[in-house]
């Protein structure tokens, strides 16, 4: 088992109103693509109800910083009562969605993701000493990078949703 540390735990975002689900998903996908993350879509669920759709999405994109450290950002998105609506923007009728979104962001730092230092208890002990004392500067740097990426993502999501708040 590799060593997994929780660096960002349970950052939440809630929004209710107009937004476009497709654009929202593509915005998140593009953000990770531009930042050099590898795509990982663990769960994508959609249920059609008479009141609207329920959409659940779990993404876990990751970026390998070296052959020892990897950062993972886990995003849980739940969308409730998603309906297609027509709004007027600048005199033109535009199709968009309306509903409620709940977003949960977590950030993890995984060290020894290749599992090279876990074959023997003595290796695990050496790995722990290495992480705590020798590699500490790099670990701190990776943690700072992860926090920065998660904050940038949160800001991007907020900007995207705020755009819709003022459009209609």
């Amino acid at each position: 088992m590799s060593e997994m540390r929780i660096i960002v735990d349970g950052l939440t975002l809630n929004y209710e109103g107009l937004f476009n689900v497709k654009d929202f998903y593509m915005m998140i996908d593009r953000f990770f693509w531009e930042k050099g993350f590898d795509k990982r879509e663990i769960n994508n669920m959609e249920k059609v109800h008479p009141d609207g759709k329920y959409i659940e999405l779990e993404l876990q994109p990751y970026k390998k910083l070296s052959d020892y450290a990897k950062i993972i950002i886990r995003i849980f998105i739940r969308m409730f009562d998603v309906k297609e609506v027509e709004v007027e923007v600048d005199g033109k009728k535009v199709k968009t969605n309306q509903g409620r979104i709940e977003i949960l962001l977590d950030g993890f730092l995984e060290t020894d993701w290749e599992g090279r230092w876990e074959s023997k208890p003595s290796f695990i002990f050496l790995r722990t000493i290495f992480d705590k004392f020798i590699y500490k500067t790099y670990i701190n740097r990776h943690e700072a990078m992860l926090k920065s990426e998660v904050n940038q993502l949160k800001t991007q999501i907020k900007s995207f949703l705020n755009l819709y708040r003022y459009r209609a």
Binding site: Y25, M26, R30, W33, N44
Partner: peptide
């Protein structure tokens, strides 16, 4: 016909 269809790559 899922709303989250799409791939940037």
């Amino acid at each position: 016909g899922m709303e989250t269809a799409g791939n940037v790559r």
